[in-house]
Design a protein around this nucleic acid. Structure first.
Lengths: 176, 176
DNA sequence: TATTGTTATACTCTATAACTATA
DNA sequence: TATAGTTATAGAGTATAACAATA
């Protein structure tokens, strides 16, 4: 039945500290990006990835690593295109592919947003860390990330049954 | 003008590794909670917090630490109540307050979901870590979390101007 | 007046499924 | 048949503002 025992107390504490800290960090970052450049973190990631690359990537290449679905990427790309930050066009190599290009405005936007972004990361994450901490954290999280990437999707997730028709989502009968 | 310089390469790498790893972890956890107990991570947090406490907390106490707005909490509480996992009632101490109580079904749901949750955390996060890593990570993230909690909200966030009416959200003119 | 909580509303994000076109 | 991408649609999450009631 595999390991379903409780986590060691130290594991539990570490897990929750990690989750909460990063939630706070994500929240702060979203705020900053929205305030400084009116983009979300996901949009920032897409732009940054394009800026880092040749400035051009196919949708599939762009999506790689950015978790979600193709349709989600299409949606974000449409928003970024409407905002003039990227351009989409046919690929010469593969007629099926869409080639995404970052515009000058896109590059400008990234550089507009970057300083504040860095400030937030520094203020929230790095300020309380020593060089040694930084090194340790980098080492650990790099290893963890690579491990996660290598994990089989989530087909392996156990499939249990609910106790009944109880749903904690919005839908639901509410027969009255 | 404070420190707006680029982060050290090691900082940048650490930051991105942290963000990506936790994003993957969050995603996996959401999947597991939804599959095993049809709840979100936020809902799990609320239930877990209630279970940890006396079983009863006011809305304000419950919200504490769970970032978002009061209305968001009200919404989630309504969902949990509809699902029979919590109960809301007036507080004897303060007539303004709402006392939230976890039900037996709520406690059951938590215990239903917990083993899988732990499995995910173990498989994705702890498996690739040595005891020493665990200790270091716990120490670091606890410190970071406490530091973040102590930070002034986000009033301190710099306020820059956009280059124009460019919006990367859904709304927007789209005059054609 | 300040605090607790709810309601109404609006918007963003994400995912699934169906569909088109090219390899 | 498999892959690249889009569209339509549906649902969940979150936040802001206005409001009611109690301290």
């Amino acid at each position: 039945m595999a390991k379903t025992d409780a986590l060691a107390p130290e594991q539990l504490g570490t897990y929750f500290a990690l989750m909460e800290a990063v939630s706070l960090l994500q929240h702060a970052v979203e705020q900053q990006l929205r305030a400084d450049g009116d983009i979300s973190y996901v949009q920032f990631q897409l732009l940054a990835r394009l800026a880092d690359s040749d400035g051009r990537l196919t949708m599939t290449e762009l999506a790689d690593g950015v978790v979600y679905s193709r349709s989600g990427l299409t949606h974000q790309a449409a928003l970024l295109e409407k905002a003039g930050l990227i351009t989409r066009g046919p690929s010469p190599d593969d007629q099926r592919a869409t080639l995404v290009t970052i515009t000058d405005a896109g590059l400008t936007r990234v550089s507009t947003v970057l300083p504040g972004h860095i400030q937030v990361a520094r203020r929230l994450l790095f300020d309380p860390l020593s060089d040694q901490d930084l090194h340790a954290l980098g080492d650990i999280m790099t290893r963890v990330r690579d491990h996660m990437r290598a994990q089989p999707p989530r087909s392996a997730a156990p499939r249990k049954r609910h106790t009944g028709p109880r749903t904690v989502r919005g839908a639901e009968a509410s027969t009255d």
